[in-house]
Nucleic acid binder design. Structure first.
Lengths: 149, 149
DNA sequence: CAAAATGGTTACAAAAGTATAACTATTAAA
DNA sequence: TTTAATAGTTATACTTTTGTAACCATTTTG
């Protein structure tokens, strides 16, 4: 790896270190205010809204959390009827998780709630910047998924 | 705001909800492993590496944390000699915070540590994707700063 | 079939983040 | 000049996150 690449990576890290607390500020607070879900549980819900069926281990792997935490989050989501545990017929050790209809609806609704909160701030942005934020957040997400999974 | 813009904002929120835990995974863990700083304190340090002088309130405002938390973080950083409290001669209520030389050096070093960890994963990316991640993380950061401060 | 590996849960402890009220010191305003 | 507002600190309580060890059930391996 050459000198330039090294510098680029350093800058990326610096950006990510900067972005993370801003997201905490923007998201965590609103999540607490607008929903009765932990941020962590909401992240699991968001993951499940992307993948139709995931095992406990897969969820833990994708979100980088140890299995006991996944169990705890899923427990909460199950109590709220937002997800279902479905045991795998082929391997009875495996517990698959699926978003319930209520879970799907709730997640969409929560996104709308969060959006409406953020929209107040996003309104300061012109159409052009909005599209830029859209594109760049897509890209960051796509690449982070690629290198962390 | 028209229908399309609404959808774009929703998608952005979804992206951010997705990105946040990935960053936690990628950063928080490494921060814990590689440094003896809380993630929160490191974020404060990172902020101060951008701005030469910030008051306690400004730090709290920029990172979206209540003043008592800022006090706690700064206390830790002061103990480690990474930042200095400088009382403002014009308004003696104000306490300004400045990165010490050691703080500057340490932050650079920590960035290198985190980079080396992440580099292992980033190595999977080709030069092209690396630049894309760089550009898009820059953009997300720039726009988040604009709408959250 | 016995042993090892895997998937998941339970239980406990520690670290960090979060919220809030009450307080001091200082400055600004009436 | 008394009152109100601002900047910061202290103290406390609570939630969430994080880490780990031990455990059961099931599957795979030798």
């Amino acid at each position: 790896m050459n000198e330039n690449t090294t510098k680029t990576v350093d800058k990326i890290i610096e950006n990510l270190i900067y972005i993370h607390p801003l997201l905490s500020k923007g998201l965590t607070r609103t999540i607490r205010a607008k929903t009765n879900l932990n941020p962590g549980s909401l992240y699991v819900l968001g993951l499940l809204s992307r993948y139709p069926l995931l095992s406990m281990s897969e969820i833990g792997c994708k979100l980088g959390m140890p299995k006991p935490h996944v169990t705890a989050h899923i427990d909460k989501l199950v109590v709220e009827n937002l997800v279902e545990r479905i045991s795998d017929p082929n391997d009875r050790r495996i517990v698959n998780i699926k978003l319930s209809l209520k879970g799907k609806e709730n997640f969409d609704m929560i996104i709308k709630e969060l959006s409406s909160e953020m929209r107040l701030r996003i309104n300061k942005l012109d159409e052009n910047k909005l599209v830029q934020l859209f594109d760049s957040s897509n890209k960051v997400r796509e690449i982070l998924v690629e290198i962390t999974f």
